[in-house]
Amino acid sequence: MATLEIHDLHVSVDAEGGPREILRGVDLTVKQGETHAIMGPNGSGKSTLAYSLAGHPKYTVTGGTVTLDGEDVLAMSVDERARAGVFLAMQYPVEVPGVSVSNFLRTSATAIRGEAPKLRTWVKEVKEAMERLSIDPSFAERNVNEGFSGGEKKRHEILQLELLKPAIAILDETDSGLDVDALRVVSEGVNRVRESGQVGTLLITHYTRILRYIKPDHVHVFAAGRIAESGGPELADKLEEEGYEEYVKGGASE
């Protein structure tokens, strides 16, 4: 039973005039099988949390701990974190010239699983996963994210989620920029992974819209670099009604 424990996490970025603290003491525990929605206004530090957990070099952890089943995640390199079971579906997936989607997926699966997947079953596995996400088969031969539309990039992220089956999935604004049809397809993908009960999901979003498709067990409001309030799904309903105003007042990090 994988558990991600974030304790008193402080993170800074380099800015003009010295380091600027973005995360100011985040406490959160995500267990396998659970879905946590993290909601908050722009600039509250949601994405910083996502990227810090994945180990992006832009962010400096200045305090606190992150462990996955007791293992120190912060001591791991980016690729070690991924192999330990942390997956980040990015808000802005990166184009990688010269690397085809099929080559990328296979290399990634080989790294994560510790051995190369058997070719015959692998081809079938990828093909079926792509079909479920309505991804055209020609994408396999295209360069990673190159010339993909916003929706195609997001579907490609969820394709990886389905194939890599992480212990902890962090979805950073996966819903942003999607029309309703794409949102439904992407959400169905996330739900298939969740139904396995094997993944703990951290769903980071600005809007409540995606929560109609992906039902969270816990909702956290993120403001000024920390969790301002936690509750059940009803908290999302309140945010839908009232917005973030209450949390922004006097709490903005700027």
Binding site: A54, G55, D79, A82, V94, P97, V99, N103, T107, V144
Partner: peptide, 28 residues
């Protein structure tokens, strides 16, 4: 080949030197 591309590939479990190799092989 940017740091962001390296990060993306590493975030999928691929070690840095293999990521670079993957990109160059694919390119040629």
């Amino acid at each position: 080949f940017e740091d962001e591309q390296l990060f993306y590939l590493m975030a999928r479990g691929i070690p840095a030197d293999e990521a670079r190799r993957l990109v160059v092989r694919g390119f040629f």
